[in-house]
């Protein structure tokens, strides 16, 4: 769920741009210069992955995967998410261009936190990795939804109902995201554990 144009008060939208710019600069500083092109490529892989819809009863939900981005990219995740959101806004109108800062904070900060939690919990064994992946994947969604509700409510009490509905609507997504993150981590642990090593995940290949 991305916030479209015209929803947020101008002050909140501009504050979002400022905050996301500061975090993005920090995130870039934490990234090796030779990794910039790789982050661009990983971003597009995530972008494509987020177009996949998983059926859920009569409807379907698309994956958000902020948690997985954090797991794989660590501190560089914020840049990756910001880039992905810019592209989604330009190509699809998913998320407004004037709300881009707020949207980047809403998805990027949970990705950072999920990445930290994953590195803290993952341990050495497959089981611990999977559990850490499930927690990080779920946490990414929970934090993103809380930030979404917070941003919506910045518009005043009129937005309370919408914020509540958005939170409830994301409950099933939470389950799906946790499970998918767990399975993806389990797959990567067996197939290419280098990607889960940290940090810098990308340099491990050289």
């Amino acid at each position: 769920m991305h916030i479209s144009d015209g929803v947020l008060p101008s002050s909140v939208a501009l504050a979002g741009v400022a905050a996301s710019a500061v975090i993005a600069v920090w995130s870039v500083r934490r990234t090796q210069p030779e990794d910039f092109p790789k982050i661009a490529v990983v971003t597009s892989a995530f972008f494509v992955a987020s177009l996949i819809h998983v059926p859920l009863g009569p409807t379907s939900v698309h994956l958000l995967i902020p948690g997985l981005v954090g797991i794989l990219l660590g501190d560089s995740a914020f840049v990756s998410i910001g880039l992905g959101l810019v592209l989604q806004s330009l190509l699809f109108q998913f998320g407004g261009i004037t709300a881009i800062g707020a949207n980047a904070c809403m998805m990027g900060i949970p990705a950072l936190v999920a990445g930290w939690i994953f590195r803290w919990l993952k341990g050495e064994t497959l089981t611990r990795h999977v559990v850490a992946g499930i927690i990080a994947g779920g946490l990414g969604v929970v934090l993103a939804v809380l930030l979404l509700a917070l941003l919506l409510m910045s518009g005043g009490e009129d937005f309370l109902g919408v914020a509540k509905l958005a939170m409830v609507a994301h409950l099933p997504v939470l389950g799906i995201e946790s499970a998918v993150a767990g399975f993806t981590v389990s797959f990567l642990y067996r197939v290419k554990p280098d990607l889960l090593r940290s940090p810098p995940t990308l340099k491990a290949e050289r």
Partner: peptide, 21 residues
């Protein structure tokens, strides 16, 4: 389905990382 999607995402990541390199 979720397990397959998880594996699929993992495979997409592995391939894109290698390709990127």
């Amino acid at each position: 389905t979720l397990r397959t999607v998880g594996n699929f995402l993992g495979m997409l990541m592995v391939r894109s990382f290698e390709r990127t390199q």
